[in-house]
Design a protein around this nucleic acid. Sequence first.
RNA 1: GCAGGCGUGGUGGAAUGGUAGACACGCAGGGCUUAGGACCCUGUUCCCCUCAUACGGGAGUGAAGGUUCAACUCCUUUCGCCUGCACCA
Length: 713
Amino acid sequence: MDKYDHKTIEAKWQRKWEENKINVVDIEKAKKPFYNLWMFPYPSAEGLHVGHAFASTAADIYGRYKKLCGYDVFQPIGYDSFGIHSENFALKIGEHPKIFTDRAIKNYERQLRAMGHMDDWSRTVTTSDPIYYKWTQWIFLQMYKAGLAYRAKANVNFCPECKTVLSDEQVIDSKCERCSTEVTKKELEQWFFRITKYADKLLKNLDKLNWTEKIKLTQKNWIGRKEGRKIRFGDIEVFTTRVDTIFGATFVILSPNHPLAGKAKTVVNPATKKEIPVFVDEYVMDSVGTGAIMGVPAYDDRDLAFARKMNLPVVKAKLTDKVFGEKMITYHLRDWLISRQRYWGPPIPMINCSECGWQPVPEKDLPVELPFIEDYQPKGAGRGPLENYPEFYKTKCPKCNGPAERETDVSDTFLDSAWYELRYPSTNFKNVPFDKKITKKWLPVNMYTGGPEHAVLHLMYFRFVAMALFDMGYLPFAEPCERFFAHGMLVKNGVKMSKSKGNVVNPDEYIAKFGADTLRLYLMFMGPVENGGDWRDTGIAGMRRWVDRVWQVINQKLENLEEGTEGMLEANKLVKKAEEDVERRHYNTTISAMMVFINGIADSNKKVGRKTLEKFLIVFSMFAPHLVEELWEKLRGKDSVHSQKWPEAGKITTESSVVVVMINGKMRATVPAGNKETVERLAKEDPRVAKYLSGNDIQKVVFVSGKVINFVL
RNA sequence: GCAGGCGUGGUGGAAUGGUAGACACGCAGGGCUUAGGACCCUGUUCCCCUCAUACGGGAGUGAAGGUUCAACUCCUUUCGCCUGCACCA
């Protein structure tokens, strides 16, 4: 028998699947649509790394399972190719972002295809393509028309390295999400999306979403809804969630930005009617509540610290249930700043006219194409590189036809990805971003897989955009995704992979050496998908040994296929186990069950029937699609394993054939299963049990059929 | 500080109230081989008993309590680690 040659077999089937279009779904005619989405990657210089392989394989196995269960699974793929992520790579290597991105995409496609996923390559989406970003700009215009996009001067986050402003969500521990540079504040006029209008809805809808709980919690914390009261202390309104402590309020503190900061000296506490001093201190934040608090040193540690510092009285007053002021709700969530002073993004489709002010670009003029320019370096002076290209920005006012200037900022890359799930099923439509009928049929996304790092970035924005489009009447649903599964992070030898550490693992060499099927199995065997995993080279070599063994064993069985019953029970157990595991993505235990099956039939004397082999191969096909297709061809000659029906688990005797005998809860022996009387008699006869029973009174006998008998002495 | 999660062999992990450590990795011993690799077999939580093996016994899931016939699993306290948010009033 041939040795397992992954190179030939994987190339052969990838070619055949492409020719036979087995992964292309008929979007129009599909009867049981299932939209299985994986967060599309941004093309980087390094190419795909094993973290991508891990996440996409996890999603792919789920998609394959749904397909076997009879769904028309649509599993698209694309590139988040606009934005700082890709542009920074281009800048680093000194290549024009357009040229670099095109090249990187080709590399990504090669790598993704090599994984053997059931991706539908006929409907890719590339966010930097004018065909796509025409509609990103269209979405901006709809937001503007709906009053959800506005321009305002604000003290915003600015990254000195990326030379652009950033949204709150893109600042992690006061550092830039992309380059980890300390972010500064700048007073600038920028475009914002009014996401705060949806704060309550974003929060409330979380309850009905079947999403990884951790993600929902992170979103909840980020929205940060807080209910309290706004209370007048003279001219100053303070915000508090602890009205009951008002009798202990011995001073008022304003944030340094408060309009009355430095002006008001004293105010009257409305509860005690006493005159109390007003201070200004940085520990009171502008952005929370009213920017003013009542200082209650007896009940608040920070107020106490301030009181001690300033020698202010600490009054332990009794708590009150009397009501003061009026109800006020505050949020942590801020409006989404979407301007970027960069080159590599969709130009914001707005025109500034000295006569008419800001005017939206008429929809018929979309897209506002991003010109190919030579000087694409970010400038850092508050405007993007396009400001040096009058041939781009000089235009006419759509309202008065007078001379006017285009916005030279581009939009945030998170706007590109905030609606891409809507585009995939409608890529063939030229005149609309997404077709109404198709959208109704295929969306919301049935299963979405991605990283938890997007909890308050992409995953918040794409919910917001869908909600807004729903309210505008463009979508029949407000939530874009029914189920979201957050995978864990893949590390290497216990250390996070990063470019700076130089320990990023590229899947190419492993696919070349061991094959994609082995890589898939190895990645999924590391543990539950949500936990991530630790990449070790020795581990993948071990998995390849098992794959070779499966190849040997199954081929041997195929050569003399007989109607034996060996392995039937294990195959049935495997089918049942897989059904439970796949939903939770505990693929590791399914692989373990497959190993048990193979160990059980490995002996060349064991006769395994066709049905048993088929069950095993169908389960195995989700994990090793190429290898199994090859074996399936040998077994059945014609059809593809990937178009089979998920097998019935058949009859499984859930009750074990032995019963555990316990004395006072400690396991002492096992006896053959049976009814209570038989088991009890057999147990008492067993010398290992009898020696404990002699000379002791049995106070109680607990019998659980097929499982355990416990003698309490 | 607030919220959430996790803690099991040398390692990844399994077991969701009923035989703890499935399945692997690694390691050790043996077989095969000119040799190495590959492959196959055996062993591998700790301690005691034993010349040794078999058999047998005890302890054991971060720690301490509790509930239960029975606890890795449920409850309480505590320690350690991780994640999110945060001078959030």
